[in-house]
Simulated scan of single mutants.
Amino acid sequence: MDQSQGGGPRTGLLSFSTARIPASHRIEHWEAHNAKALIGLDIRTLEDRPLVAQEINLYFPALRFATVKGSSQIVERSERLIAAHPTGDVAIFFALGGEAFFYHSTGMITLKAGQAVLYDADLPFVRGFSYGVRELVLTIPHQEYFRLSHGRPLKEPVVFEFAPGPGTPGPDPAATSLAAFIDSALRRPEQDLCSVEQDAFALIEQLVTRAVGTDRESAYRRAVKEIEHRFAEASLDREQVAAAAGVSERQLARLFAARGQSFAEHLLARRLQAAEAWLASDPDASIAEIARRCGFTSPSHFTRRFKERTGVTPSELQRAASMQADIEWSRLSI
Rank of each mutant, 00 (worst) to 15 (best):
S333M: 07
G151C: 11
L272M: 03
D172S: 02
G167C: 05
A274C: 06
P314D: 00
S24T: 06
Y119P: 06
G12E: 08
Y131C: 05
A180S: 14
A257S: 14
G295C: 10
V68K: 00
N34I: 02
Y59V: 00
W329S: 00
S195W: 15
G107P: 07
C194S: 11
G246T: 08
T139G: 04
A211K: 08
A291C: 05
A180F: 03
A242T: 06
R10F: 15
A95N: 12
R80N: 13
G246V: 06
Q318R: 12
V208G: 09
H85W: 10
Q240T: 07
S195G: 02
G132E: 10
H104F: 15
F129I: 01
L255W: 08
L148W: 13
H301M: 00
G114S: 08
A180R: 15
G12V: 01
S298V: 01
S130L: 08
Q143T: 03
E228G: 13
H150D: 15
L13Q: 11
P314W: 00
D215F: 05
A91H: 10
L332R: 08
A200V: 00
R80W: 14
S218M: 05
K225V: 12
F296K: 01
L38N: 12
I204A: 06
Q191F: 14
E79M: 01
V158G: 06
E276H: 11
R254D: 09
S298G: 07
A200C: 04
E55Y: 05
F201R: 15
L148K: 04
P50W: 04
R271T: 03
L272R: 14
Q206P: 08
T297R: 15
F125L: 03
E28A: 12
L178D: 10
P171Q: 00
W329Q: 11
S24I: 01
V312A: 12
E249K: 15
V90P: 12
